[in-house]
Design a protein around this nucleic acid. Structure first.
Lengths: 340, 340
DNA sequence: GGGATCATTCAAAGCGATTTCAAATTTTTG
DNA sequence: CAAAAATTTGAAATCGCTTTGAATGATCCC
């Protein structure tokens, strides 16, 4: 069922039918109704490729995911948010999975040269991110999820990682904790650096000295967190509180605490960062988990919205959003206890 | 940089350039080289929309993901496998996220009518799956990840869920367990029904009667599994072994076992199904986890391959793959112990 | 009643690739 | 050496849509 067929069926020209369907004003209301009704009845939908060729818009946005590191609960949840918003506009999400950094760069070049996507979303930036520079060089519009240092203006949305960790750390200090472990992301990642800043700021505000042994940099998985926490709990004096980088990290730390014969929320406290996964609820845990909370799904929805704004002409220099992070106190964090 | 520009730059016609780049035989080897070199140097890539319109191929395959239920570690890992194979062919993955079942149906119709994709991958089938029927009606090629009852032939790849659970159950029975809990997926899902068949078959082969209180049907999340296992452990006599539907489920069960003051691998055994996530390794757990194992990522790679075969004309009736599942015994499963 | 205005409609020219069919050139053959 | 065959190139049609510019009737105004 092509436009031509539909037009013949209606005894109209392609022009009129196209206009009727796309809501142009210069078409008689009666014919518009007739066209719309017939199109719906016959299940007509414009051929995506033809439409894109004619309009010059790709009707898709791209996301490149590094299979080894970036796939996981965070990406899926974020993608869900992006999709939710874009589905309404009939814009597709093109997912390209790559193994290496080189592949990722190549993928962006492909996107740009073949005009396969109108824009991309860039995730997990480093402080100095080559990919962002490349995208600007290529003139491929993008929104950065996170922040990076760049000379040229770019559109970004980030959560206030520094502020979140600073508040969480300060709160633990208020409760009397002095040995507070930070399970952070990999060095070089902007968010990890920002969290470290918040952590250090809170410590130094109270004159508590920083102990490198209490900071871990790793991916956010149950397993790695378990090992790091296990090692830290063998230190003497051991940490009395943990700042877990993600809910997966929190699960690992939790196991290590149990393993060490300690009780979370009593002998050890923990505040975890919660990106809000539907299947991992801080309120349902036992004990319930204190968290710094910011929905990564909601961020996805908003970033999709920002992409749409860019595509309709809004200057990227005007697009910067720094989201505050909630601190939600529950049972896993409490006053420091004298060591057994 | 359009084909036209490239052709002018070379002093050749579009025809010749197009042929040279696409490897047609009727072009002089010297010119082909010159064209290839120049194209590479100038970074020319055909416009995706134009190419698709001209060839009639969409150059993309579609996946519709139900945000609420299907997003998560399983999908991401599977998607990684699919992408790995398809990237080599310059075929994109179009991800459409939907909320409801109705939306999902609508998404397939959109795919078909707008010719946005050449084929789709259908996941998480039910025993009688309307979506499969719809796709066959629409004539949209697809590979089913799993199985379903359908009158018409369709391409599928599935793992031997029945056999896997039957072997795991038999093994636990061999170890003397008689109260074996099964944490299964949602009723109606083919894989869950198949697992139940294997479970029941193993039980009845030993004359052990089935206790419905020992079977749970739920999504595979840490939290839900925790609650189900917690409730089951309060039964008297309590289960001495668990079959966990996924590694996330296993984590929840593990927490419940700890919580009940029991030790995994001693007072309680567990065998979990392991889809092989890079960040959740059965060997790294404590105790190490006995599993029925089958890589969902590898399945993704293979399904992508099958899609390519279908697109190059292989009849779907010839595409059926049933993959065996390994049983890997580790520390979490052992002989039944007398109850304390 | 006739020229100007307005509301509708349509034919045809893109969009950027592939592909058919024909033409030009070179090579082979008798 | 001329005719036939093979090799190499190009002009133009095509894919299915949007959009420009022109045309047709209907309506208005004096």
């Amino acid at each position: 069922m092509r436009l031509k067929d539909l037009a013949e069926h209606l005894g109209l020209s392609q022009t009129t039918v196209s206009r009727a369907l796309n809501g142009y004003p210069e078409v008689n209301e009666a014919t518009r109704l007739r066209v719309a009704e017939t199109a719906a009845r016959l299940g007509y939908r414009p051929n995506a490729s033809a439409l894109r060729l004619a309009t010059g818009r790709a009707g898709a946005i791209g996301m490149v995911l590094r299979a080894s590191t970036e796939f996981g609960p965070h990406s899926s949840e974020f993608l869900g948010g992006v999709g939710e918003r874009l589905a309404a506009e009939e814009i597709d999400i093109l997912v390209s999975t790559v193994e290496t950094y080189q592949d990722e760069i190549a993928a962006y070049r492909r996107f740009a040269a073949s005009q396969r996507v109108d824009a991309v979303i860039l995730q997990s930036p480093k402080l100095n991110d080559q990919r962002a520079e490349l995208l600007m060089d290529l003139g491929l519009p993008f929104v950065l999820h996170g922040r990076t240092n760049a000379a040229r203006p770019l559109a970004w949305l980030d959560i206030d990682n520094t502020g979140a960790i600073e508040r969480a750390t300060s709160h633990l200090l208020d409760l009397g904790h002095r040995r507070i472990a930070l399970l952070n992301g990999m060095k070089g990642q902007t968010f990890a650096e920002h969290r470290q800043l918040g952590y250090l700021a809170a410590l130094s505000a109270r004159g508590v000295s920083f102990d490198p042994a209490l900071m871990g940099n790793s991916t956010f998985t149950d397993e790695v967190a378990f090992r790091l926490a296990q090692a830290m709990l063998e230190l003497r004096p051991r940490p009395t509180a943990f700042l877990a980088g993600s809910m997966m990290t929190a699960l690992g730390v939790f196991r290590a605490i149990r393993q060490a014969g300690l009780t979370l929320g009593q002998e050890v406290s923990m505040i975890a960062h919660d990106d809000v996964f539907p299947y991992l609820n801080a309120d349902n845990m036992y004990p319930t988990m204190s968290t710094t909370r910011s929905s990564i799904r909601t961020a996805g929805v908003r970033i999709a919205e920002l992409i749409l704004q860019i595509l309709s002409g809004k200057p990227v220099a005007d697009i910067h959003e720094l989201w505050p992070v909630e601190l939600v106190l529950r049972e896993s964090s409490g006053p420091v206890m004298a060591e057994k």
